[in-house]
C-alpha cells in the first residue's frame, strides 16, 4: 500500500482494492454462470421495464435489472423504484370487446 493509497483510504475517498475485487468478481461471475450475452440481457431488461411500467409508474433512470450470484445460483434481480401505481393499468386488450386479437398467446396459435 502506497502512502497515497493509505491517505485515500483514511479519507474514505477510495475503498480497499480487495473489496473492489470482490464486487467486480461477483458481477463477472453472475454473467459467466448465466451464460447470457449482454445483448440478450439488455433486451430482457427493456421488456421487463415495459411490462412493469404498464402497471406502475417507475423511475426508469433509478431502476436496475441485474444478475446476482450466491452459492453458485444466479438470480435475476430487479430493483425498480415505484413512483405511483397507475389508476387504470395500460394493459393492451383489457376492456376491449374483442380479446382474441389482444391476447398474444391466442394470436400465436
Amino acid at each position: 500500500m502506497t502512502l497515497r493509497d493509505l491517505i485515500n483510504r483514511l479519507l474514505r475517498r477510495q475503498q480497499a482494492s480487495g473489496e473492489t475485487a470482490k464486487q467486480r468478481l461477483q458481477l463477472v461471475l453472475a454473467h459467466d454462470r448465466s451464460d447470457l450475452n449482454p445483448e440478450l440481457l439488455q433486451r430482457m431488461r427493456q421488456e421487463i421495464l415495459e411490462v412493469v411500467s404498464r402497471y406502475v409508474e417507475i423511475d426508469v433512470d433509478e431502476g436496475e435489472v441485474s444478475l446476482e450470484t450466491e452459492d453458485r445460483v444466479t438470480a435475476l434481480v430487479a430493483n425498480l423504484p415505484i413512483k405511483r401505481a397507475r389508476s387504470l393499468p395500460l394493459i393492451p386488450g383489457l376492456g376491449d370487446s374483442d380479446q382474441s386479437t389482444a391476447d398474444p398467446l391466442r394470436r400465436a396459435s
Binding site: M1, A16, G18, E19, A21, L25
Partner: peptide, 19 residues
C-alpha cells in the same frame, strides 16, 4: 499482510464465491 490490509480477496471471499 495484504489480506489484513484488505488489498486482496480474503479466504472467506473466495470460499463464499466458489462455494
Amino acid at each position: 499482510k495484504m489480506m489484513a490490509n484488505q488489498e486482496m480477496l480474503t479466504v472467506q471471499d473466495v470460499t463464499d464465491i466458489l462455494a
